[in-house]
Structures are given as structure tokens and as C-alpha cells.
Design a protein around this nucleic acid. Sequence first.
DNA 1: CTGAAAGCGCTAACAA
DNA 2: TTGTTAGCGCTTTCAG
Lengths: 345, 345
Amino acid sequence: MPRPTITQVAALAGVSIASASRALNDQIASAETIEKVRKAAAELGYIPDSRARSLKLGRTQQLAYAVADIGNPVYVEMMSAVQHVVAASGYRLVISSTGTTSTSLEVVDELRRGHVDGLILSPLRVTDELIQALELAPVPVVVLGRAPEESTIDSVRADSPRGMRMVVDHLVATGRRRLVFLNGPRDTTPGRLREEGFLAAMAAHPDAEGRTFAAPDFTIASGYAAAQKVLDDADDAPLDAIVAANDLIGIGALHAADDLGWSVPGDLSITGMDNTELAEVTRPGLTSVDLGAAERGRLAAELLLARIAEPTRAVHTVTVAPSLTIRASSMAKPLAQATAERGVG
Amino acid sequence: MPRPTITQVAALAGVSIASASRALNDQIASAETIEKVRKAAAELGYIPDSRARSLKLGRTQQLAYAVADIGNPVYVEMMSAVQHVVAASGYRLVISSTGTTSTSLEVVDELRRGHVDGLILSPLRVTDELIQALELAPVPVVVLGRAPEESTIDSVRADSPRGMRMVVDHLVATGRRRLVFLNGPRDTTPGRLREEGFLAAMAAHPDAEGRTFAAPDFTIASGYAAAQKVLDDADDAPLDAIVAANDLIGIGALHAADDLGWSVPGDLSITGMDNTELAEVTRPGLTSVDLGAAERGRLAAELLLARIAEPTRAVHTVTVAPSLTIRASSMAKPLAQATAERGVG
DNA sequence: CTGAAAGCGCTAACAA
DNA sequence: TTGTTAGCGCTTTCAG
């Protein structure tokens, strides 16, 4: 049996389809009509067709979430939060993985198909071209990341510079003086911001020195190779802390240190960033900056829903405060030794 | 400026809207018409409205992926694979998180809105009620998990019993004789199957003995607590291997062993299941059975697309072969000691 | 408060 | 090959 339409509900209730529609939606009808229609709808198991509704109303009750790589734990965390908010508001979530190479422009172009009422976009690189496209997008867009100050696009950003500052302050406070920043690719937004944040933080500590090194990817393997190189050169260029640009690189560094016989945190502190589940799983646990991925996802979804509800509202740029989760990988030396005795190091 | 419609394209090209539609879709038109329409469409930047198309054609070019918890790494891995296949075939992916409590029945009901052309469902519990609902679903469904033999639903299943057999064989071959199976909740499909698989595998090794213990969740915290209890009781009930029902429980066990001063794999082998990214991150690395999550996701998507293309085709039940990834957590003793000297244990 | 009718944008008969 | 027309299922004027 085919799905019942509103026409059949109306027929069974003995009213016009217009009345049926009104009774079901606005409730603007006589009590008697509403009752009859509800009963008929229930009897037939009527559920309105979202395709027809979309066409008529010009909205789909769907939102898009587009990121470079939906497998990335940070994006997954955001997505869960987004999905939660979105579902609670009666929207569906359409995901699209843009791939690390593309510029997200295709995603914006796709919006013109009208299949979603809004977009949450986390672009790897924010180009002028992209911003321009977003301003002209047919539906509201919220950017997870840095949108230019003067743009008219809502955005939710992490505060990685401040996060970096927290990490560096913590390392210096626990006695580290020669820090190496292990970055991913510098031509990405996180790569650029985190490195700038690191250097700015170091500038506040004249008694400590920091240098930087860029791995080709934000991955464990890249982090491992990069850390290996840095640790191998330690005779010429000593160090007592590695500040990784993200958890994956940090874990790679943790493994490299382990394999090269460095004691963490005895000889070397290692920190990550993003505070993914992975950071909790390593031993020693990886100290990491939580940039509030879930919180950012939640806010992005709320901003988007608010703008859909009120398209002319003021532009919002929300920054989520980071927090530092200190784990064993960056404990101060006395603590570190106590830990090592238990067999952790 | 509003999105151009096919009416405007037709007007600019100087043909009827029907001709414009044919030229754009089937290409059944004179070369001249096709050329004119293409030019007009390009000039206006025309993109067909997917809402109107959905209503007219009765299909949305969207598929749904529904799992209990989209934050779970296994589901994420599947989702990535699904998204990959689906996007390559011109479909969009709508995700929905059913929550651990629900029976997935709401998801099936939602299908009647007609917003997707098919569903990939990974139910936590497969009830008769659910299967019945799936058989009556208005669009094709592929189940990730066990569908009853006689049902008419395509499904892709992991072979966790065989995976368990591989783990147990490996542990026995490396000298372990007293195995404890650390399960999650037994009233879930994976919980039941994995425990049965463990017991069946043990039956093949009369010289070894195995017992089981159920944690309330498939989480690190539950695994930690459960392992703690089992290890505390080791005087009365000795053991030399923990077989965890999944990686999270395995990692919890790894941490508990560490904290209680057990050397892994010196005193104790620990294994997980699912071979998530997490298993690679721990030290010692967690031996784990790869149940082919990505492969299952890929196959499920392909099965769904095939059924949509040919609704009357034969029912397919595909089983993906597991593979064992041996890491340091279950090395044989000689190897284990060599590793320990390097400071891993 | 209710019903008739228009129409969202598109595709697919059908006729020419 | 082309144009005319109906209609997918629904909401929303507009009269009554």
C-alpha cells in the first residue's frame, strides 16, 4: 500500500484538503474539524511528505555540515554536538566530506540546489574567494574557523593562540626552557595560527627559547618522523619540551621519544592540542589543550538556527575559550619521577 | 537575485521548458537545441532545484545512515566509507544518531516522510519488531549487523566469532592458558556474539581455561573497573590473558594492569577488538581484531545502491572476514622482555 | 471557519 | 524533435 496523502486524510475526515492541512499544522480550525482530521490521520498512519513540503515551503528542514575529513576526531566531536542541537530542533543533518585538497567552493555551489536551509562549514583554508562565495550563498552559513573581521558571516572560532599561551606558560612554570613547536603544514589556518600563537607565547618568556619545525601532515606518522629528527639533533640543539600542534603529532612524538629512549616527562615534556580521546589513552597521558570542539559545534548549530529564524539579526563572532588538561606527559620533574616509579614512563 | 528556474533558461534559449528539461537531462533533443539550452543555463548559472526534482521523481538522491552513537570510532569509520561510496554515486548522506536507548524504530518510521531513498542501519539490538518494520519499510534498508537468516533484508555482518577464534588461538599459541573474557553488556548483539565466540573458541582448546566477566558498558572506564576487579581476584582465580570485547574495554584493562603493577605482556596479555585508531596509540600497542568496519561500510553502501537500482534482486548477506593485528600487548614472553628493556612495558 | 483553486519547479505523457 | 499540459503533495491565498 502506498503512503497515504493529505487528500485521503481529508476524504476520510469529510473535509477539504485545505482544512485538513490547517488542522494538522496551524490548528486554525474548529475543534470539531481538528478532531476529525486528527482521527483520520491517525487511522491512516498519515505522515506528511517532506519532499512536497520542501517544494511548497521553500525549506527542507535540513542543514549541511561540511568538513575536509569526517574521520578526523575533532570534526567528529563537533559533528556529534551539531547533530544533537540540530535534531532537537527538528532538522536533519546532511554531511559532506570536502576532501583535503578542495577549497570548499563546490560545497557552497551545491547550496544552490536548495537541498539544505543552512550550512556549517569548517574550511581548511579561508580564501578571499571562499568568503566572497559565502557572502553570496543562497542560505545562511556559519563558519567554524576564522572569518575576516569585516565579513557578514557568523563564525565560531577556537582561541588557539590563547591555548598555546596556556601550554607554554605551563611548560615554563614546570621548569622547561627549550621548547620545540612541532607544527603541521604552515599553509593551513590552524598551522599558521598555532605557530603564531606559540611564538607570541614564547615572546612573553625571555628566559626560555623556542623554535619551530613543520611536519607535512597533522598525523601520527608525520609527528613521529618529525620528532625523531628533532630528538636526533638534540646534541646540537638541545630541548626539554615538545609542543605539538595537535594530538596526533603529539602522539607521534610520544612514540618517537619512547623508541629513542627519552623518558617522558622525565627528560622531556610533550603536549598536544585538541584534547581528543586519544590524549587520554596514551601512557603517559598527553597533556592537551581543549579547544572546545563540542562547544564550538553546539554554538555553530545554534547560531545557524538563530539566523535562519531571524535572517537580519546582527552578525555574531563567538570565540570559545580553551582549557588546558594537564596529564602525565608534562608533569614537573618531581611528580614525573613519582609516576615513573609506578612504571608509567 | 533569486535562483534561476528552468523556465528562465527555456525563455533565454527560446525553447519550451520541456525541451530545456530534455536537453539538460536525457539529451534527447537536436544538437542545436542542446547547444542553445546549455549556453542559456551556463549564462544564468542554472542549477536544478533538488526539492522540485525530488517531488516529481519520487526520489531524493539522499541516503540515511543511522547508528546509536555517531561519536563511536567504529561507526565513524563505517560512516567515512559509506560517505565515500555514496558521494561518488551522486547521493547525499543524512546522518541520524538514534541514541543508545531507542530501538531504531523511530528511524524506520521517519522513512515514511520520503526524505531518503534508502537507509543503512546499525541497530544495537535486532528485535523481531524491528525486523518486521524493516521488511515493511517504504525504501530499501541495509542492516549493518545480524539480520535473521530468513529475512528479506540485505545485510553486512562482521564475523566476530571467527575473530574471537583468531584471538584465542593466538593467545594459546603464545603460551597463555587462563583467559578472562571482559565483555560489555550481554544483552547487546555484539556482547552476545562475542561472548559466544569466545566460549566456542575456548572449547577448541581443552588445555586452556576461559571465564567471562561483563562490564556495564563498552567504555574505557567500565573496562578499567572490570579489569581492576578481575586482577584483584587473581590470587583466587589466576589469569594470564584478558580478552576484551572491544578496544575501549581493552584500553581500560591496559590502564588498570599498569596501575596495579602488572607487566603487559610480561605477566599478562591483553587484546581488544575492532582495531580502532586507539589500539595503535597505546603503549604497548593493543593487539586487536579488525572486523573490517570500513569494508563493511563500503559494502553496505554498495548493496544499498544496487538494490535501489534493482529492487527485485536477490537478497545479499555479506560477511566480512576479520583479521588479527598483533601488537605488543600480546607478544610472547621472549619478545615481551626484549620490548620491556626498551622501556615500553 | 471553510472550500476552491493556484502554484512551488520540475519531468513525462501525449499530440503535433 | 518539439510544445502543450498534467500533476507530484502540499500550503496558502482568496472568496464565501
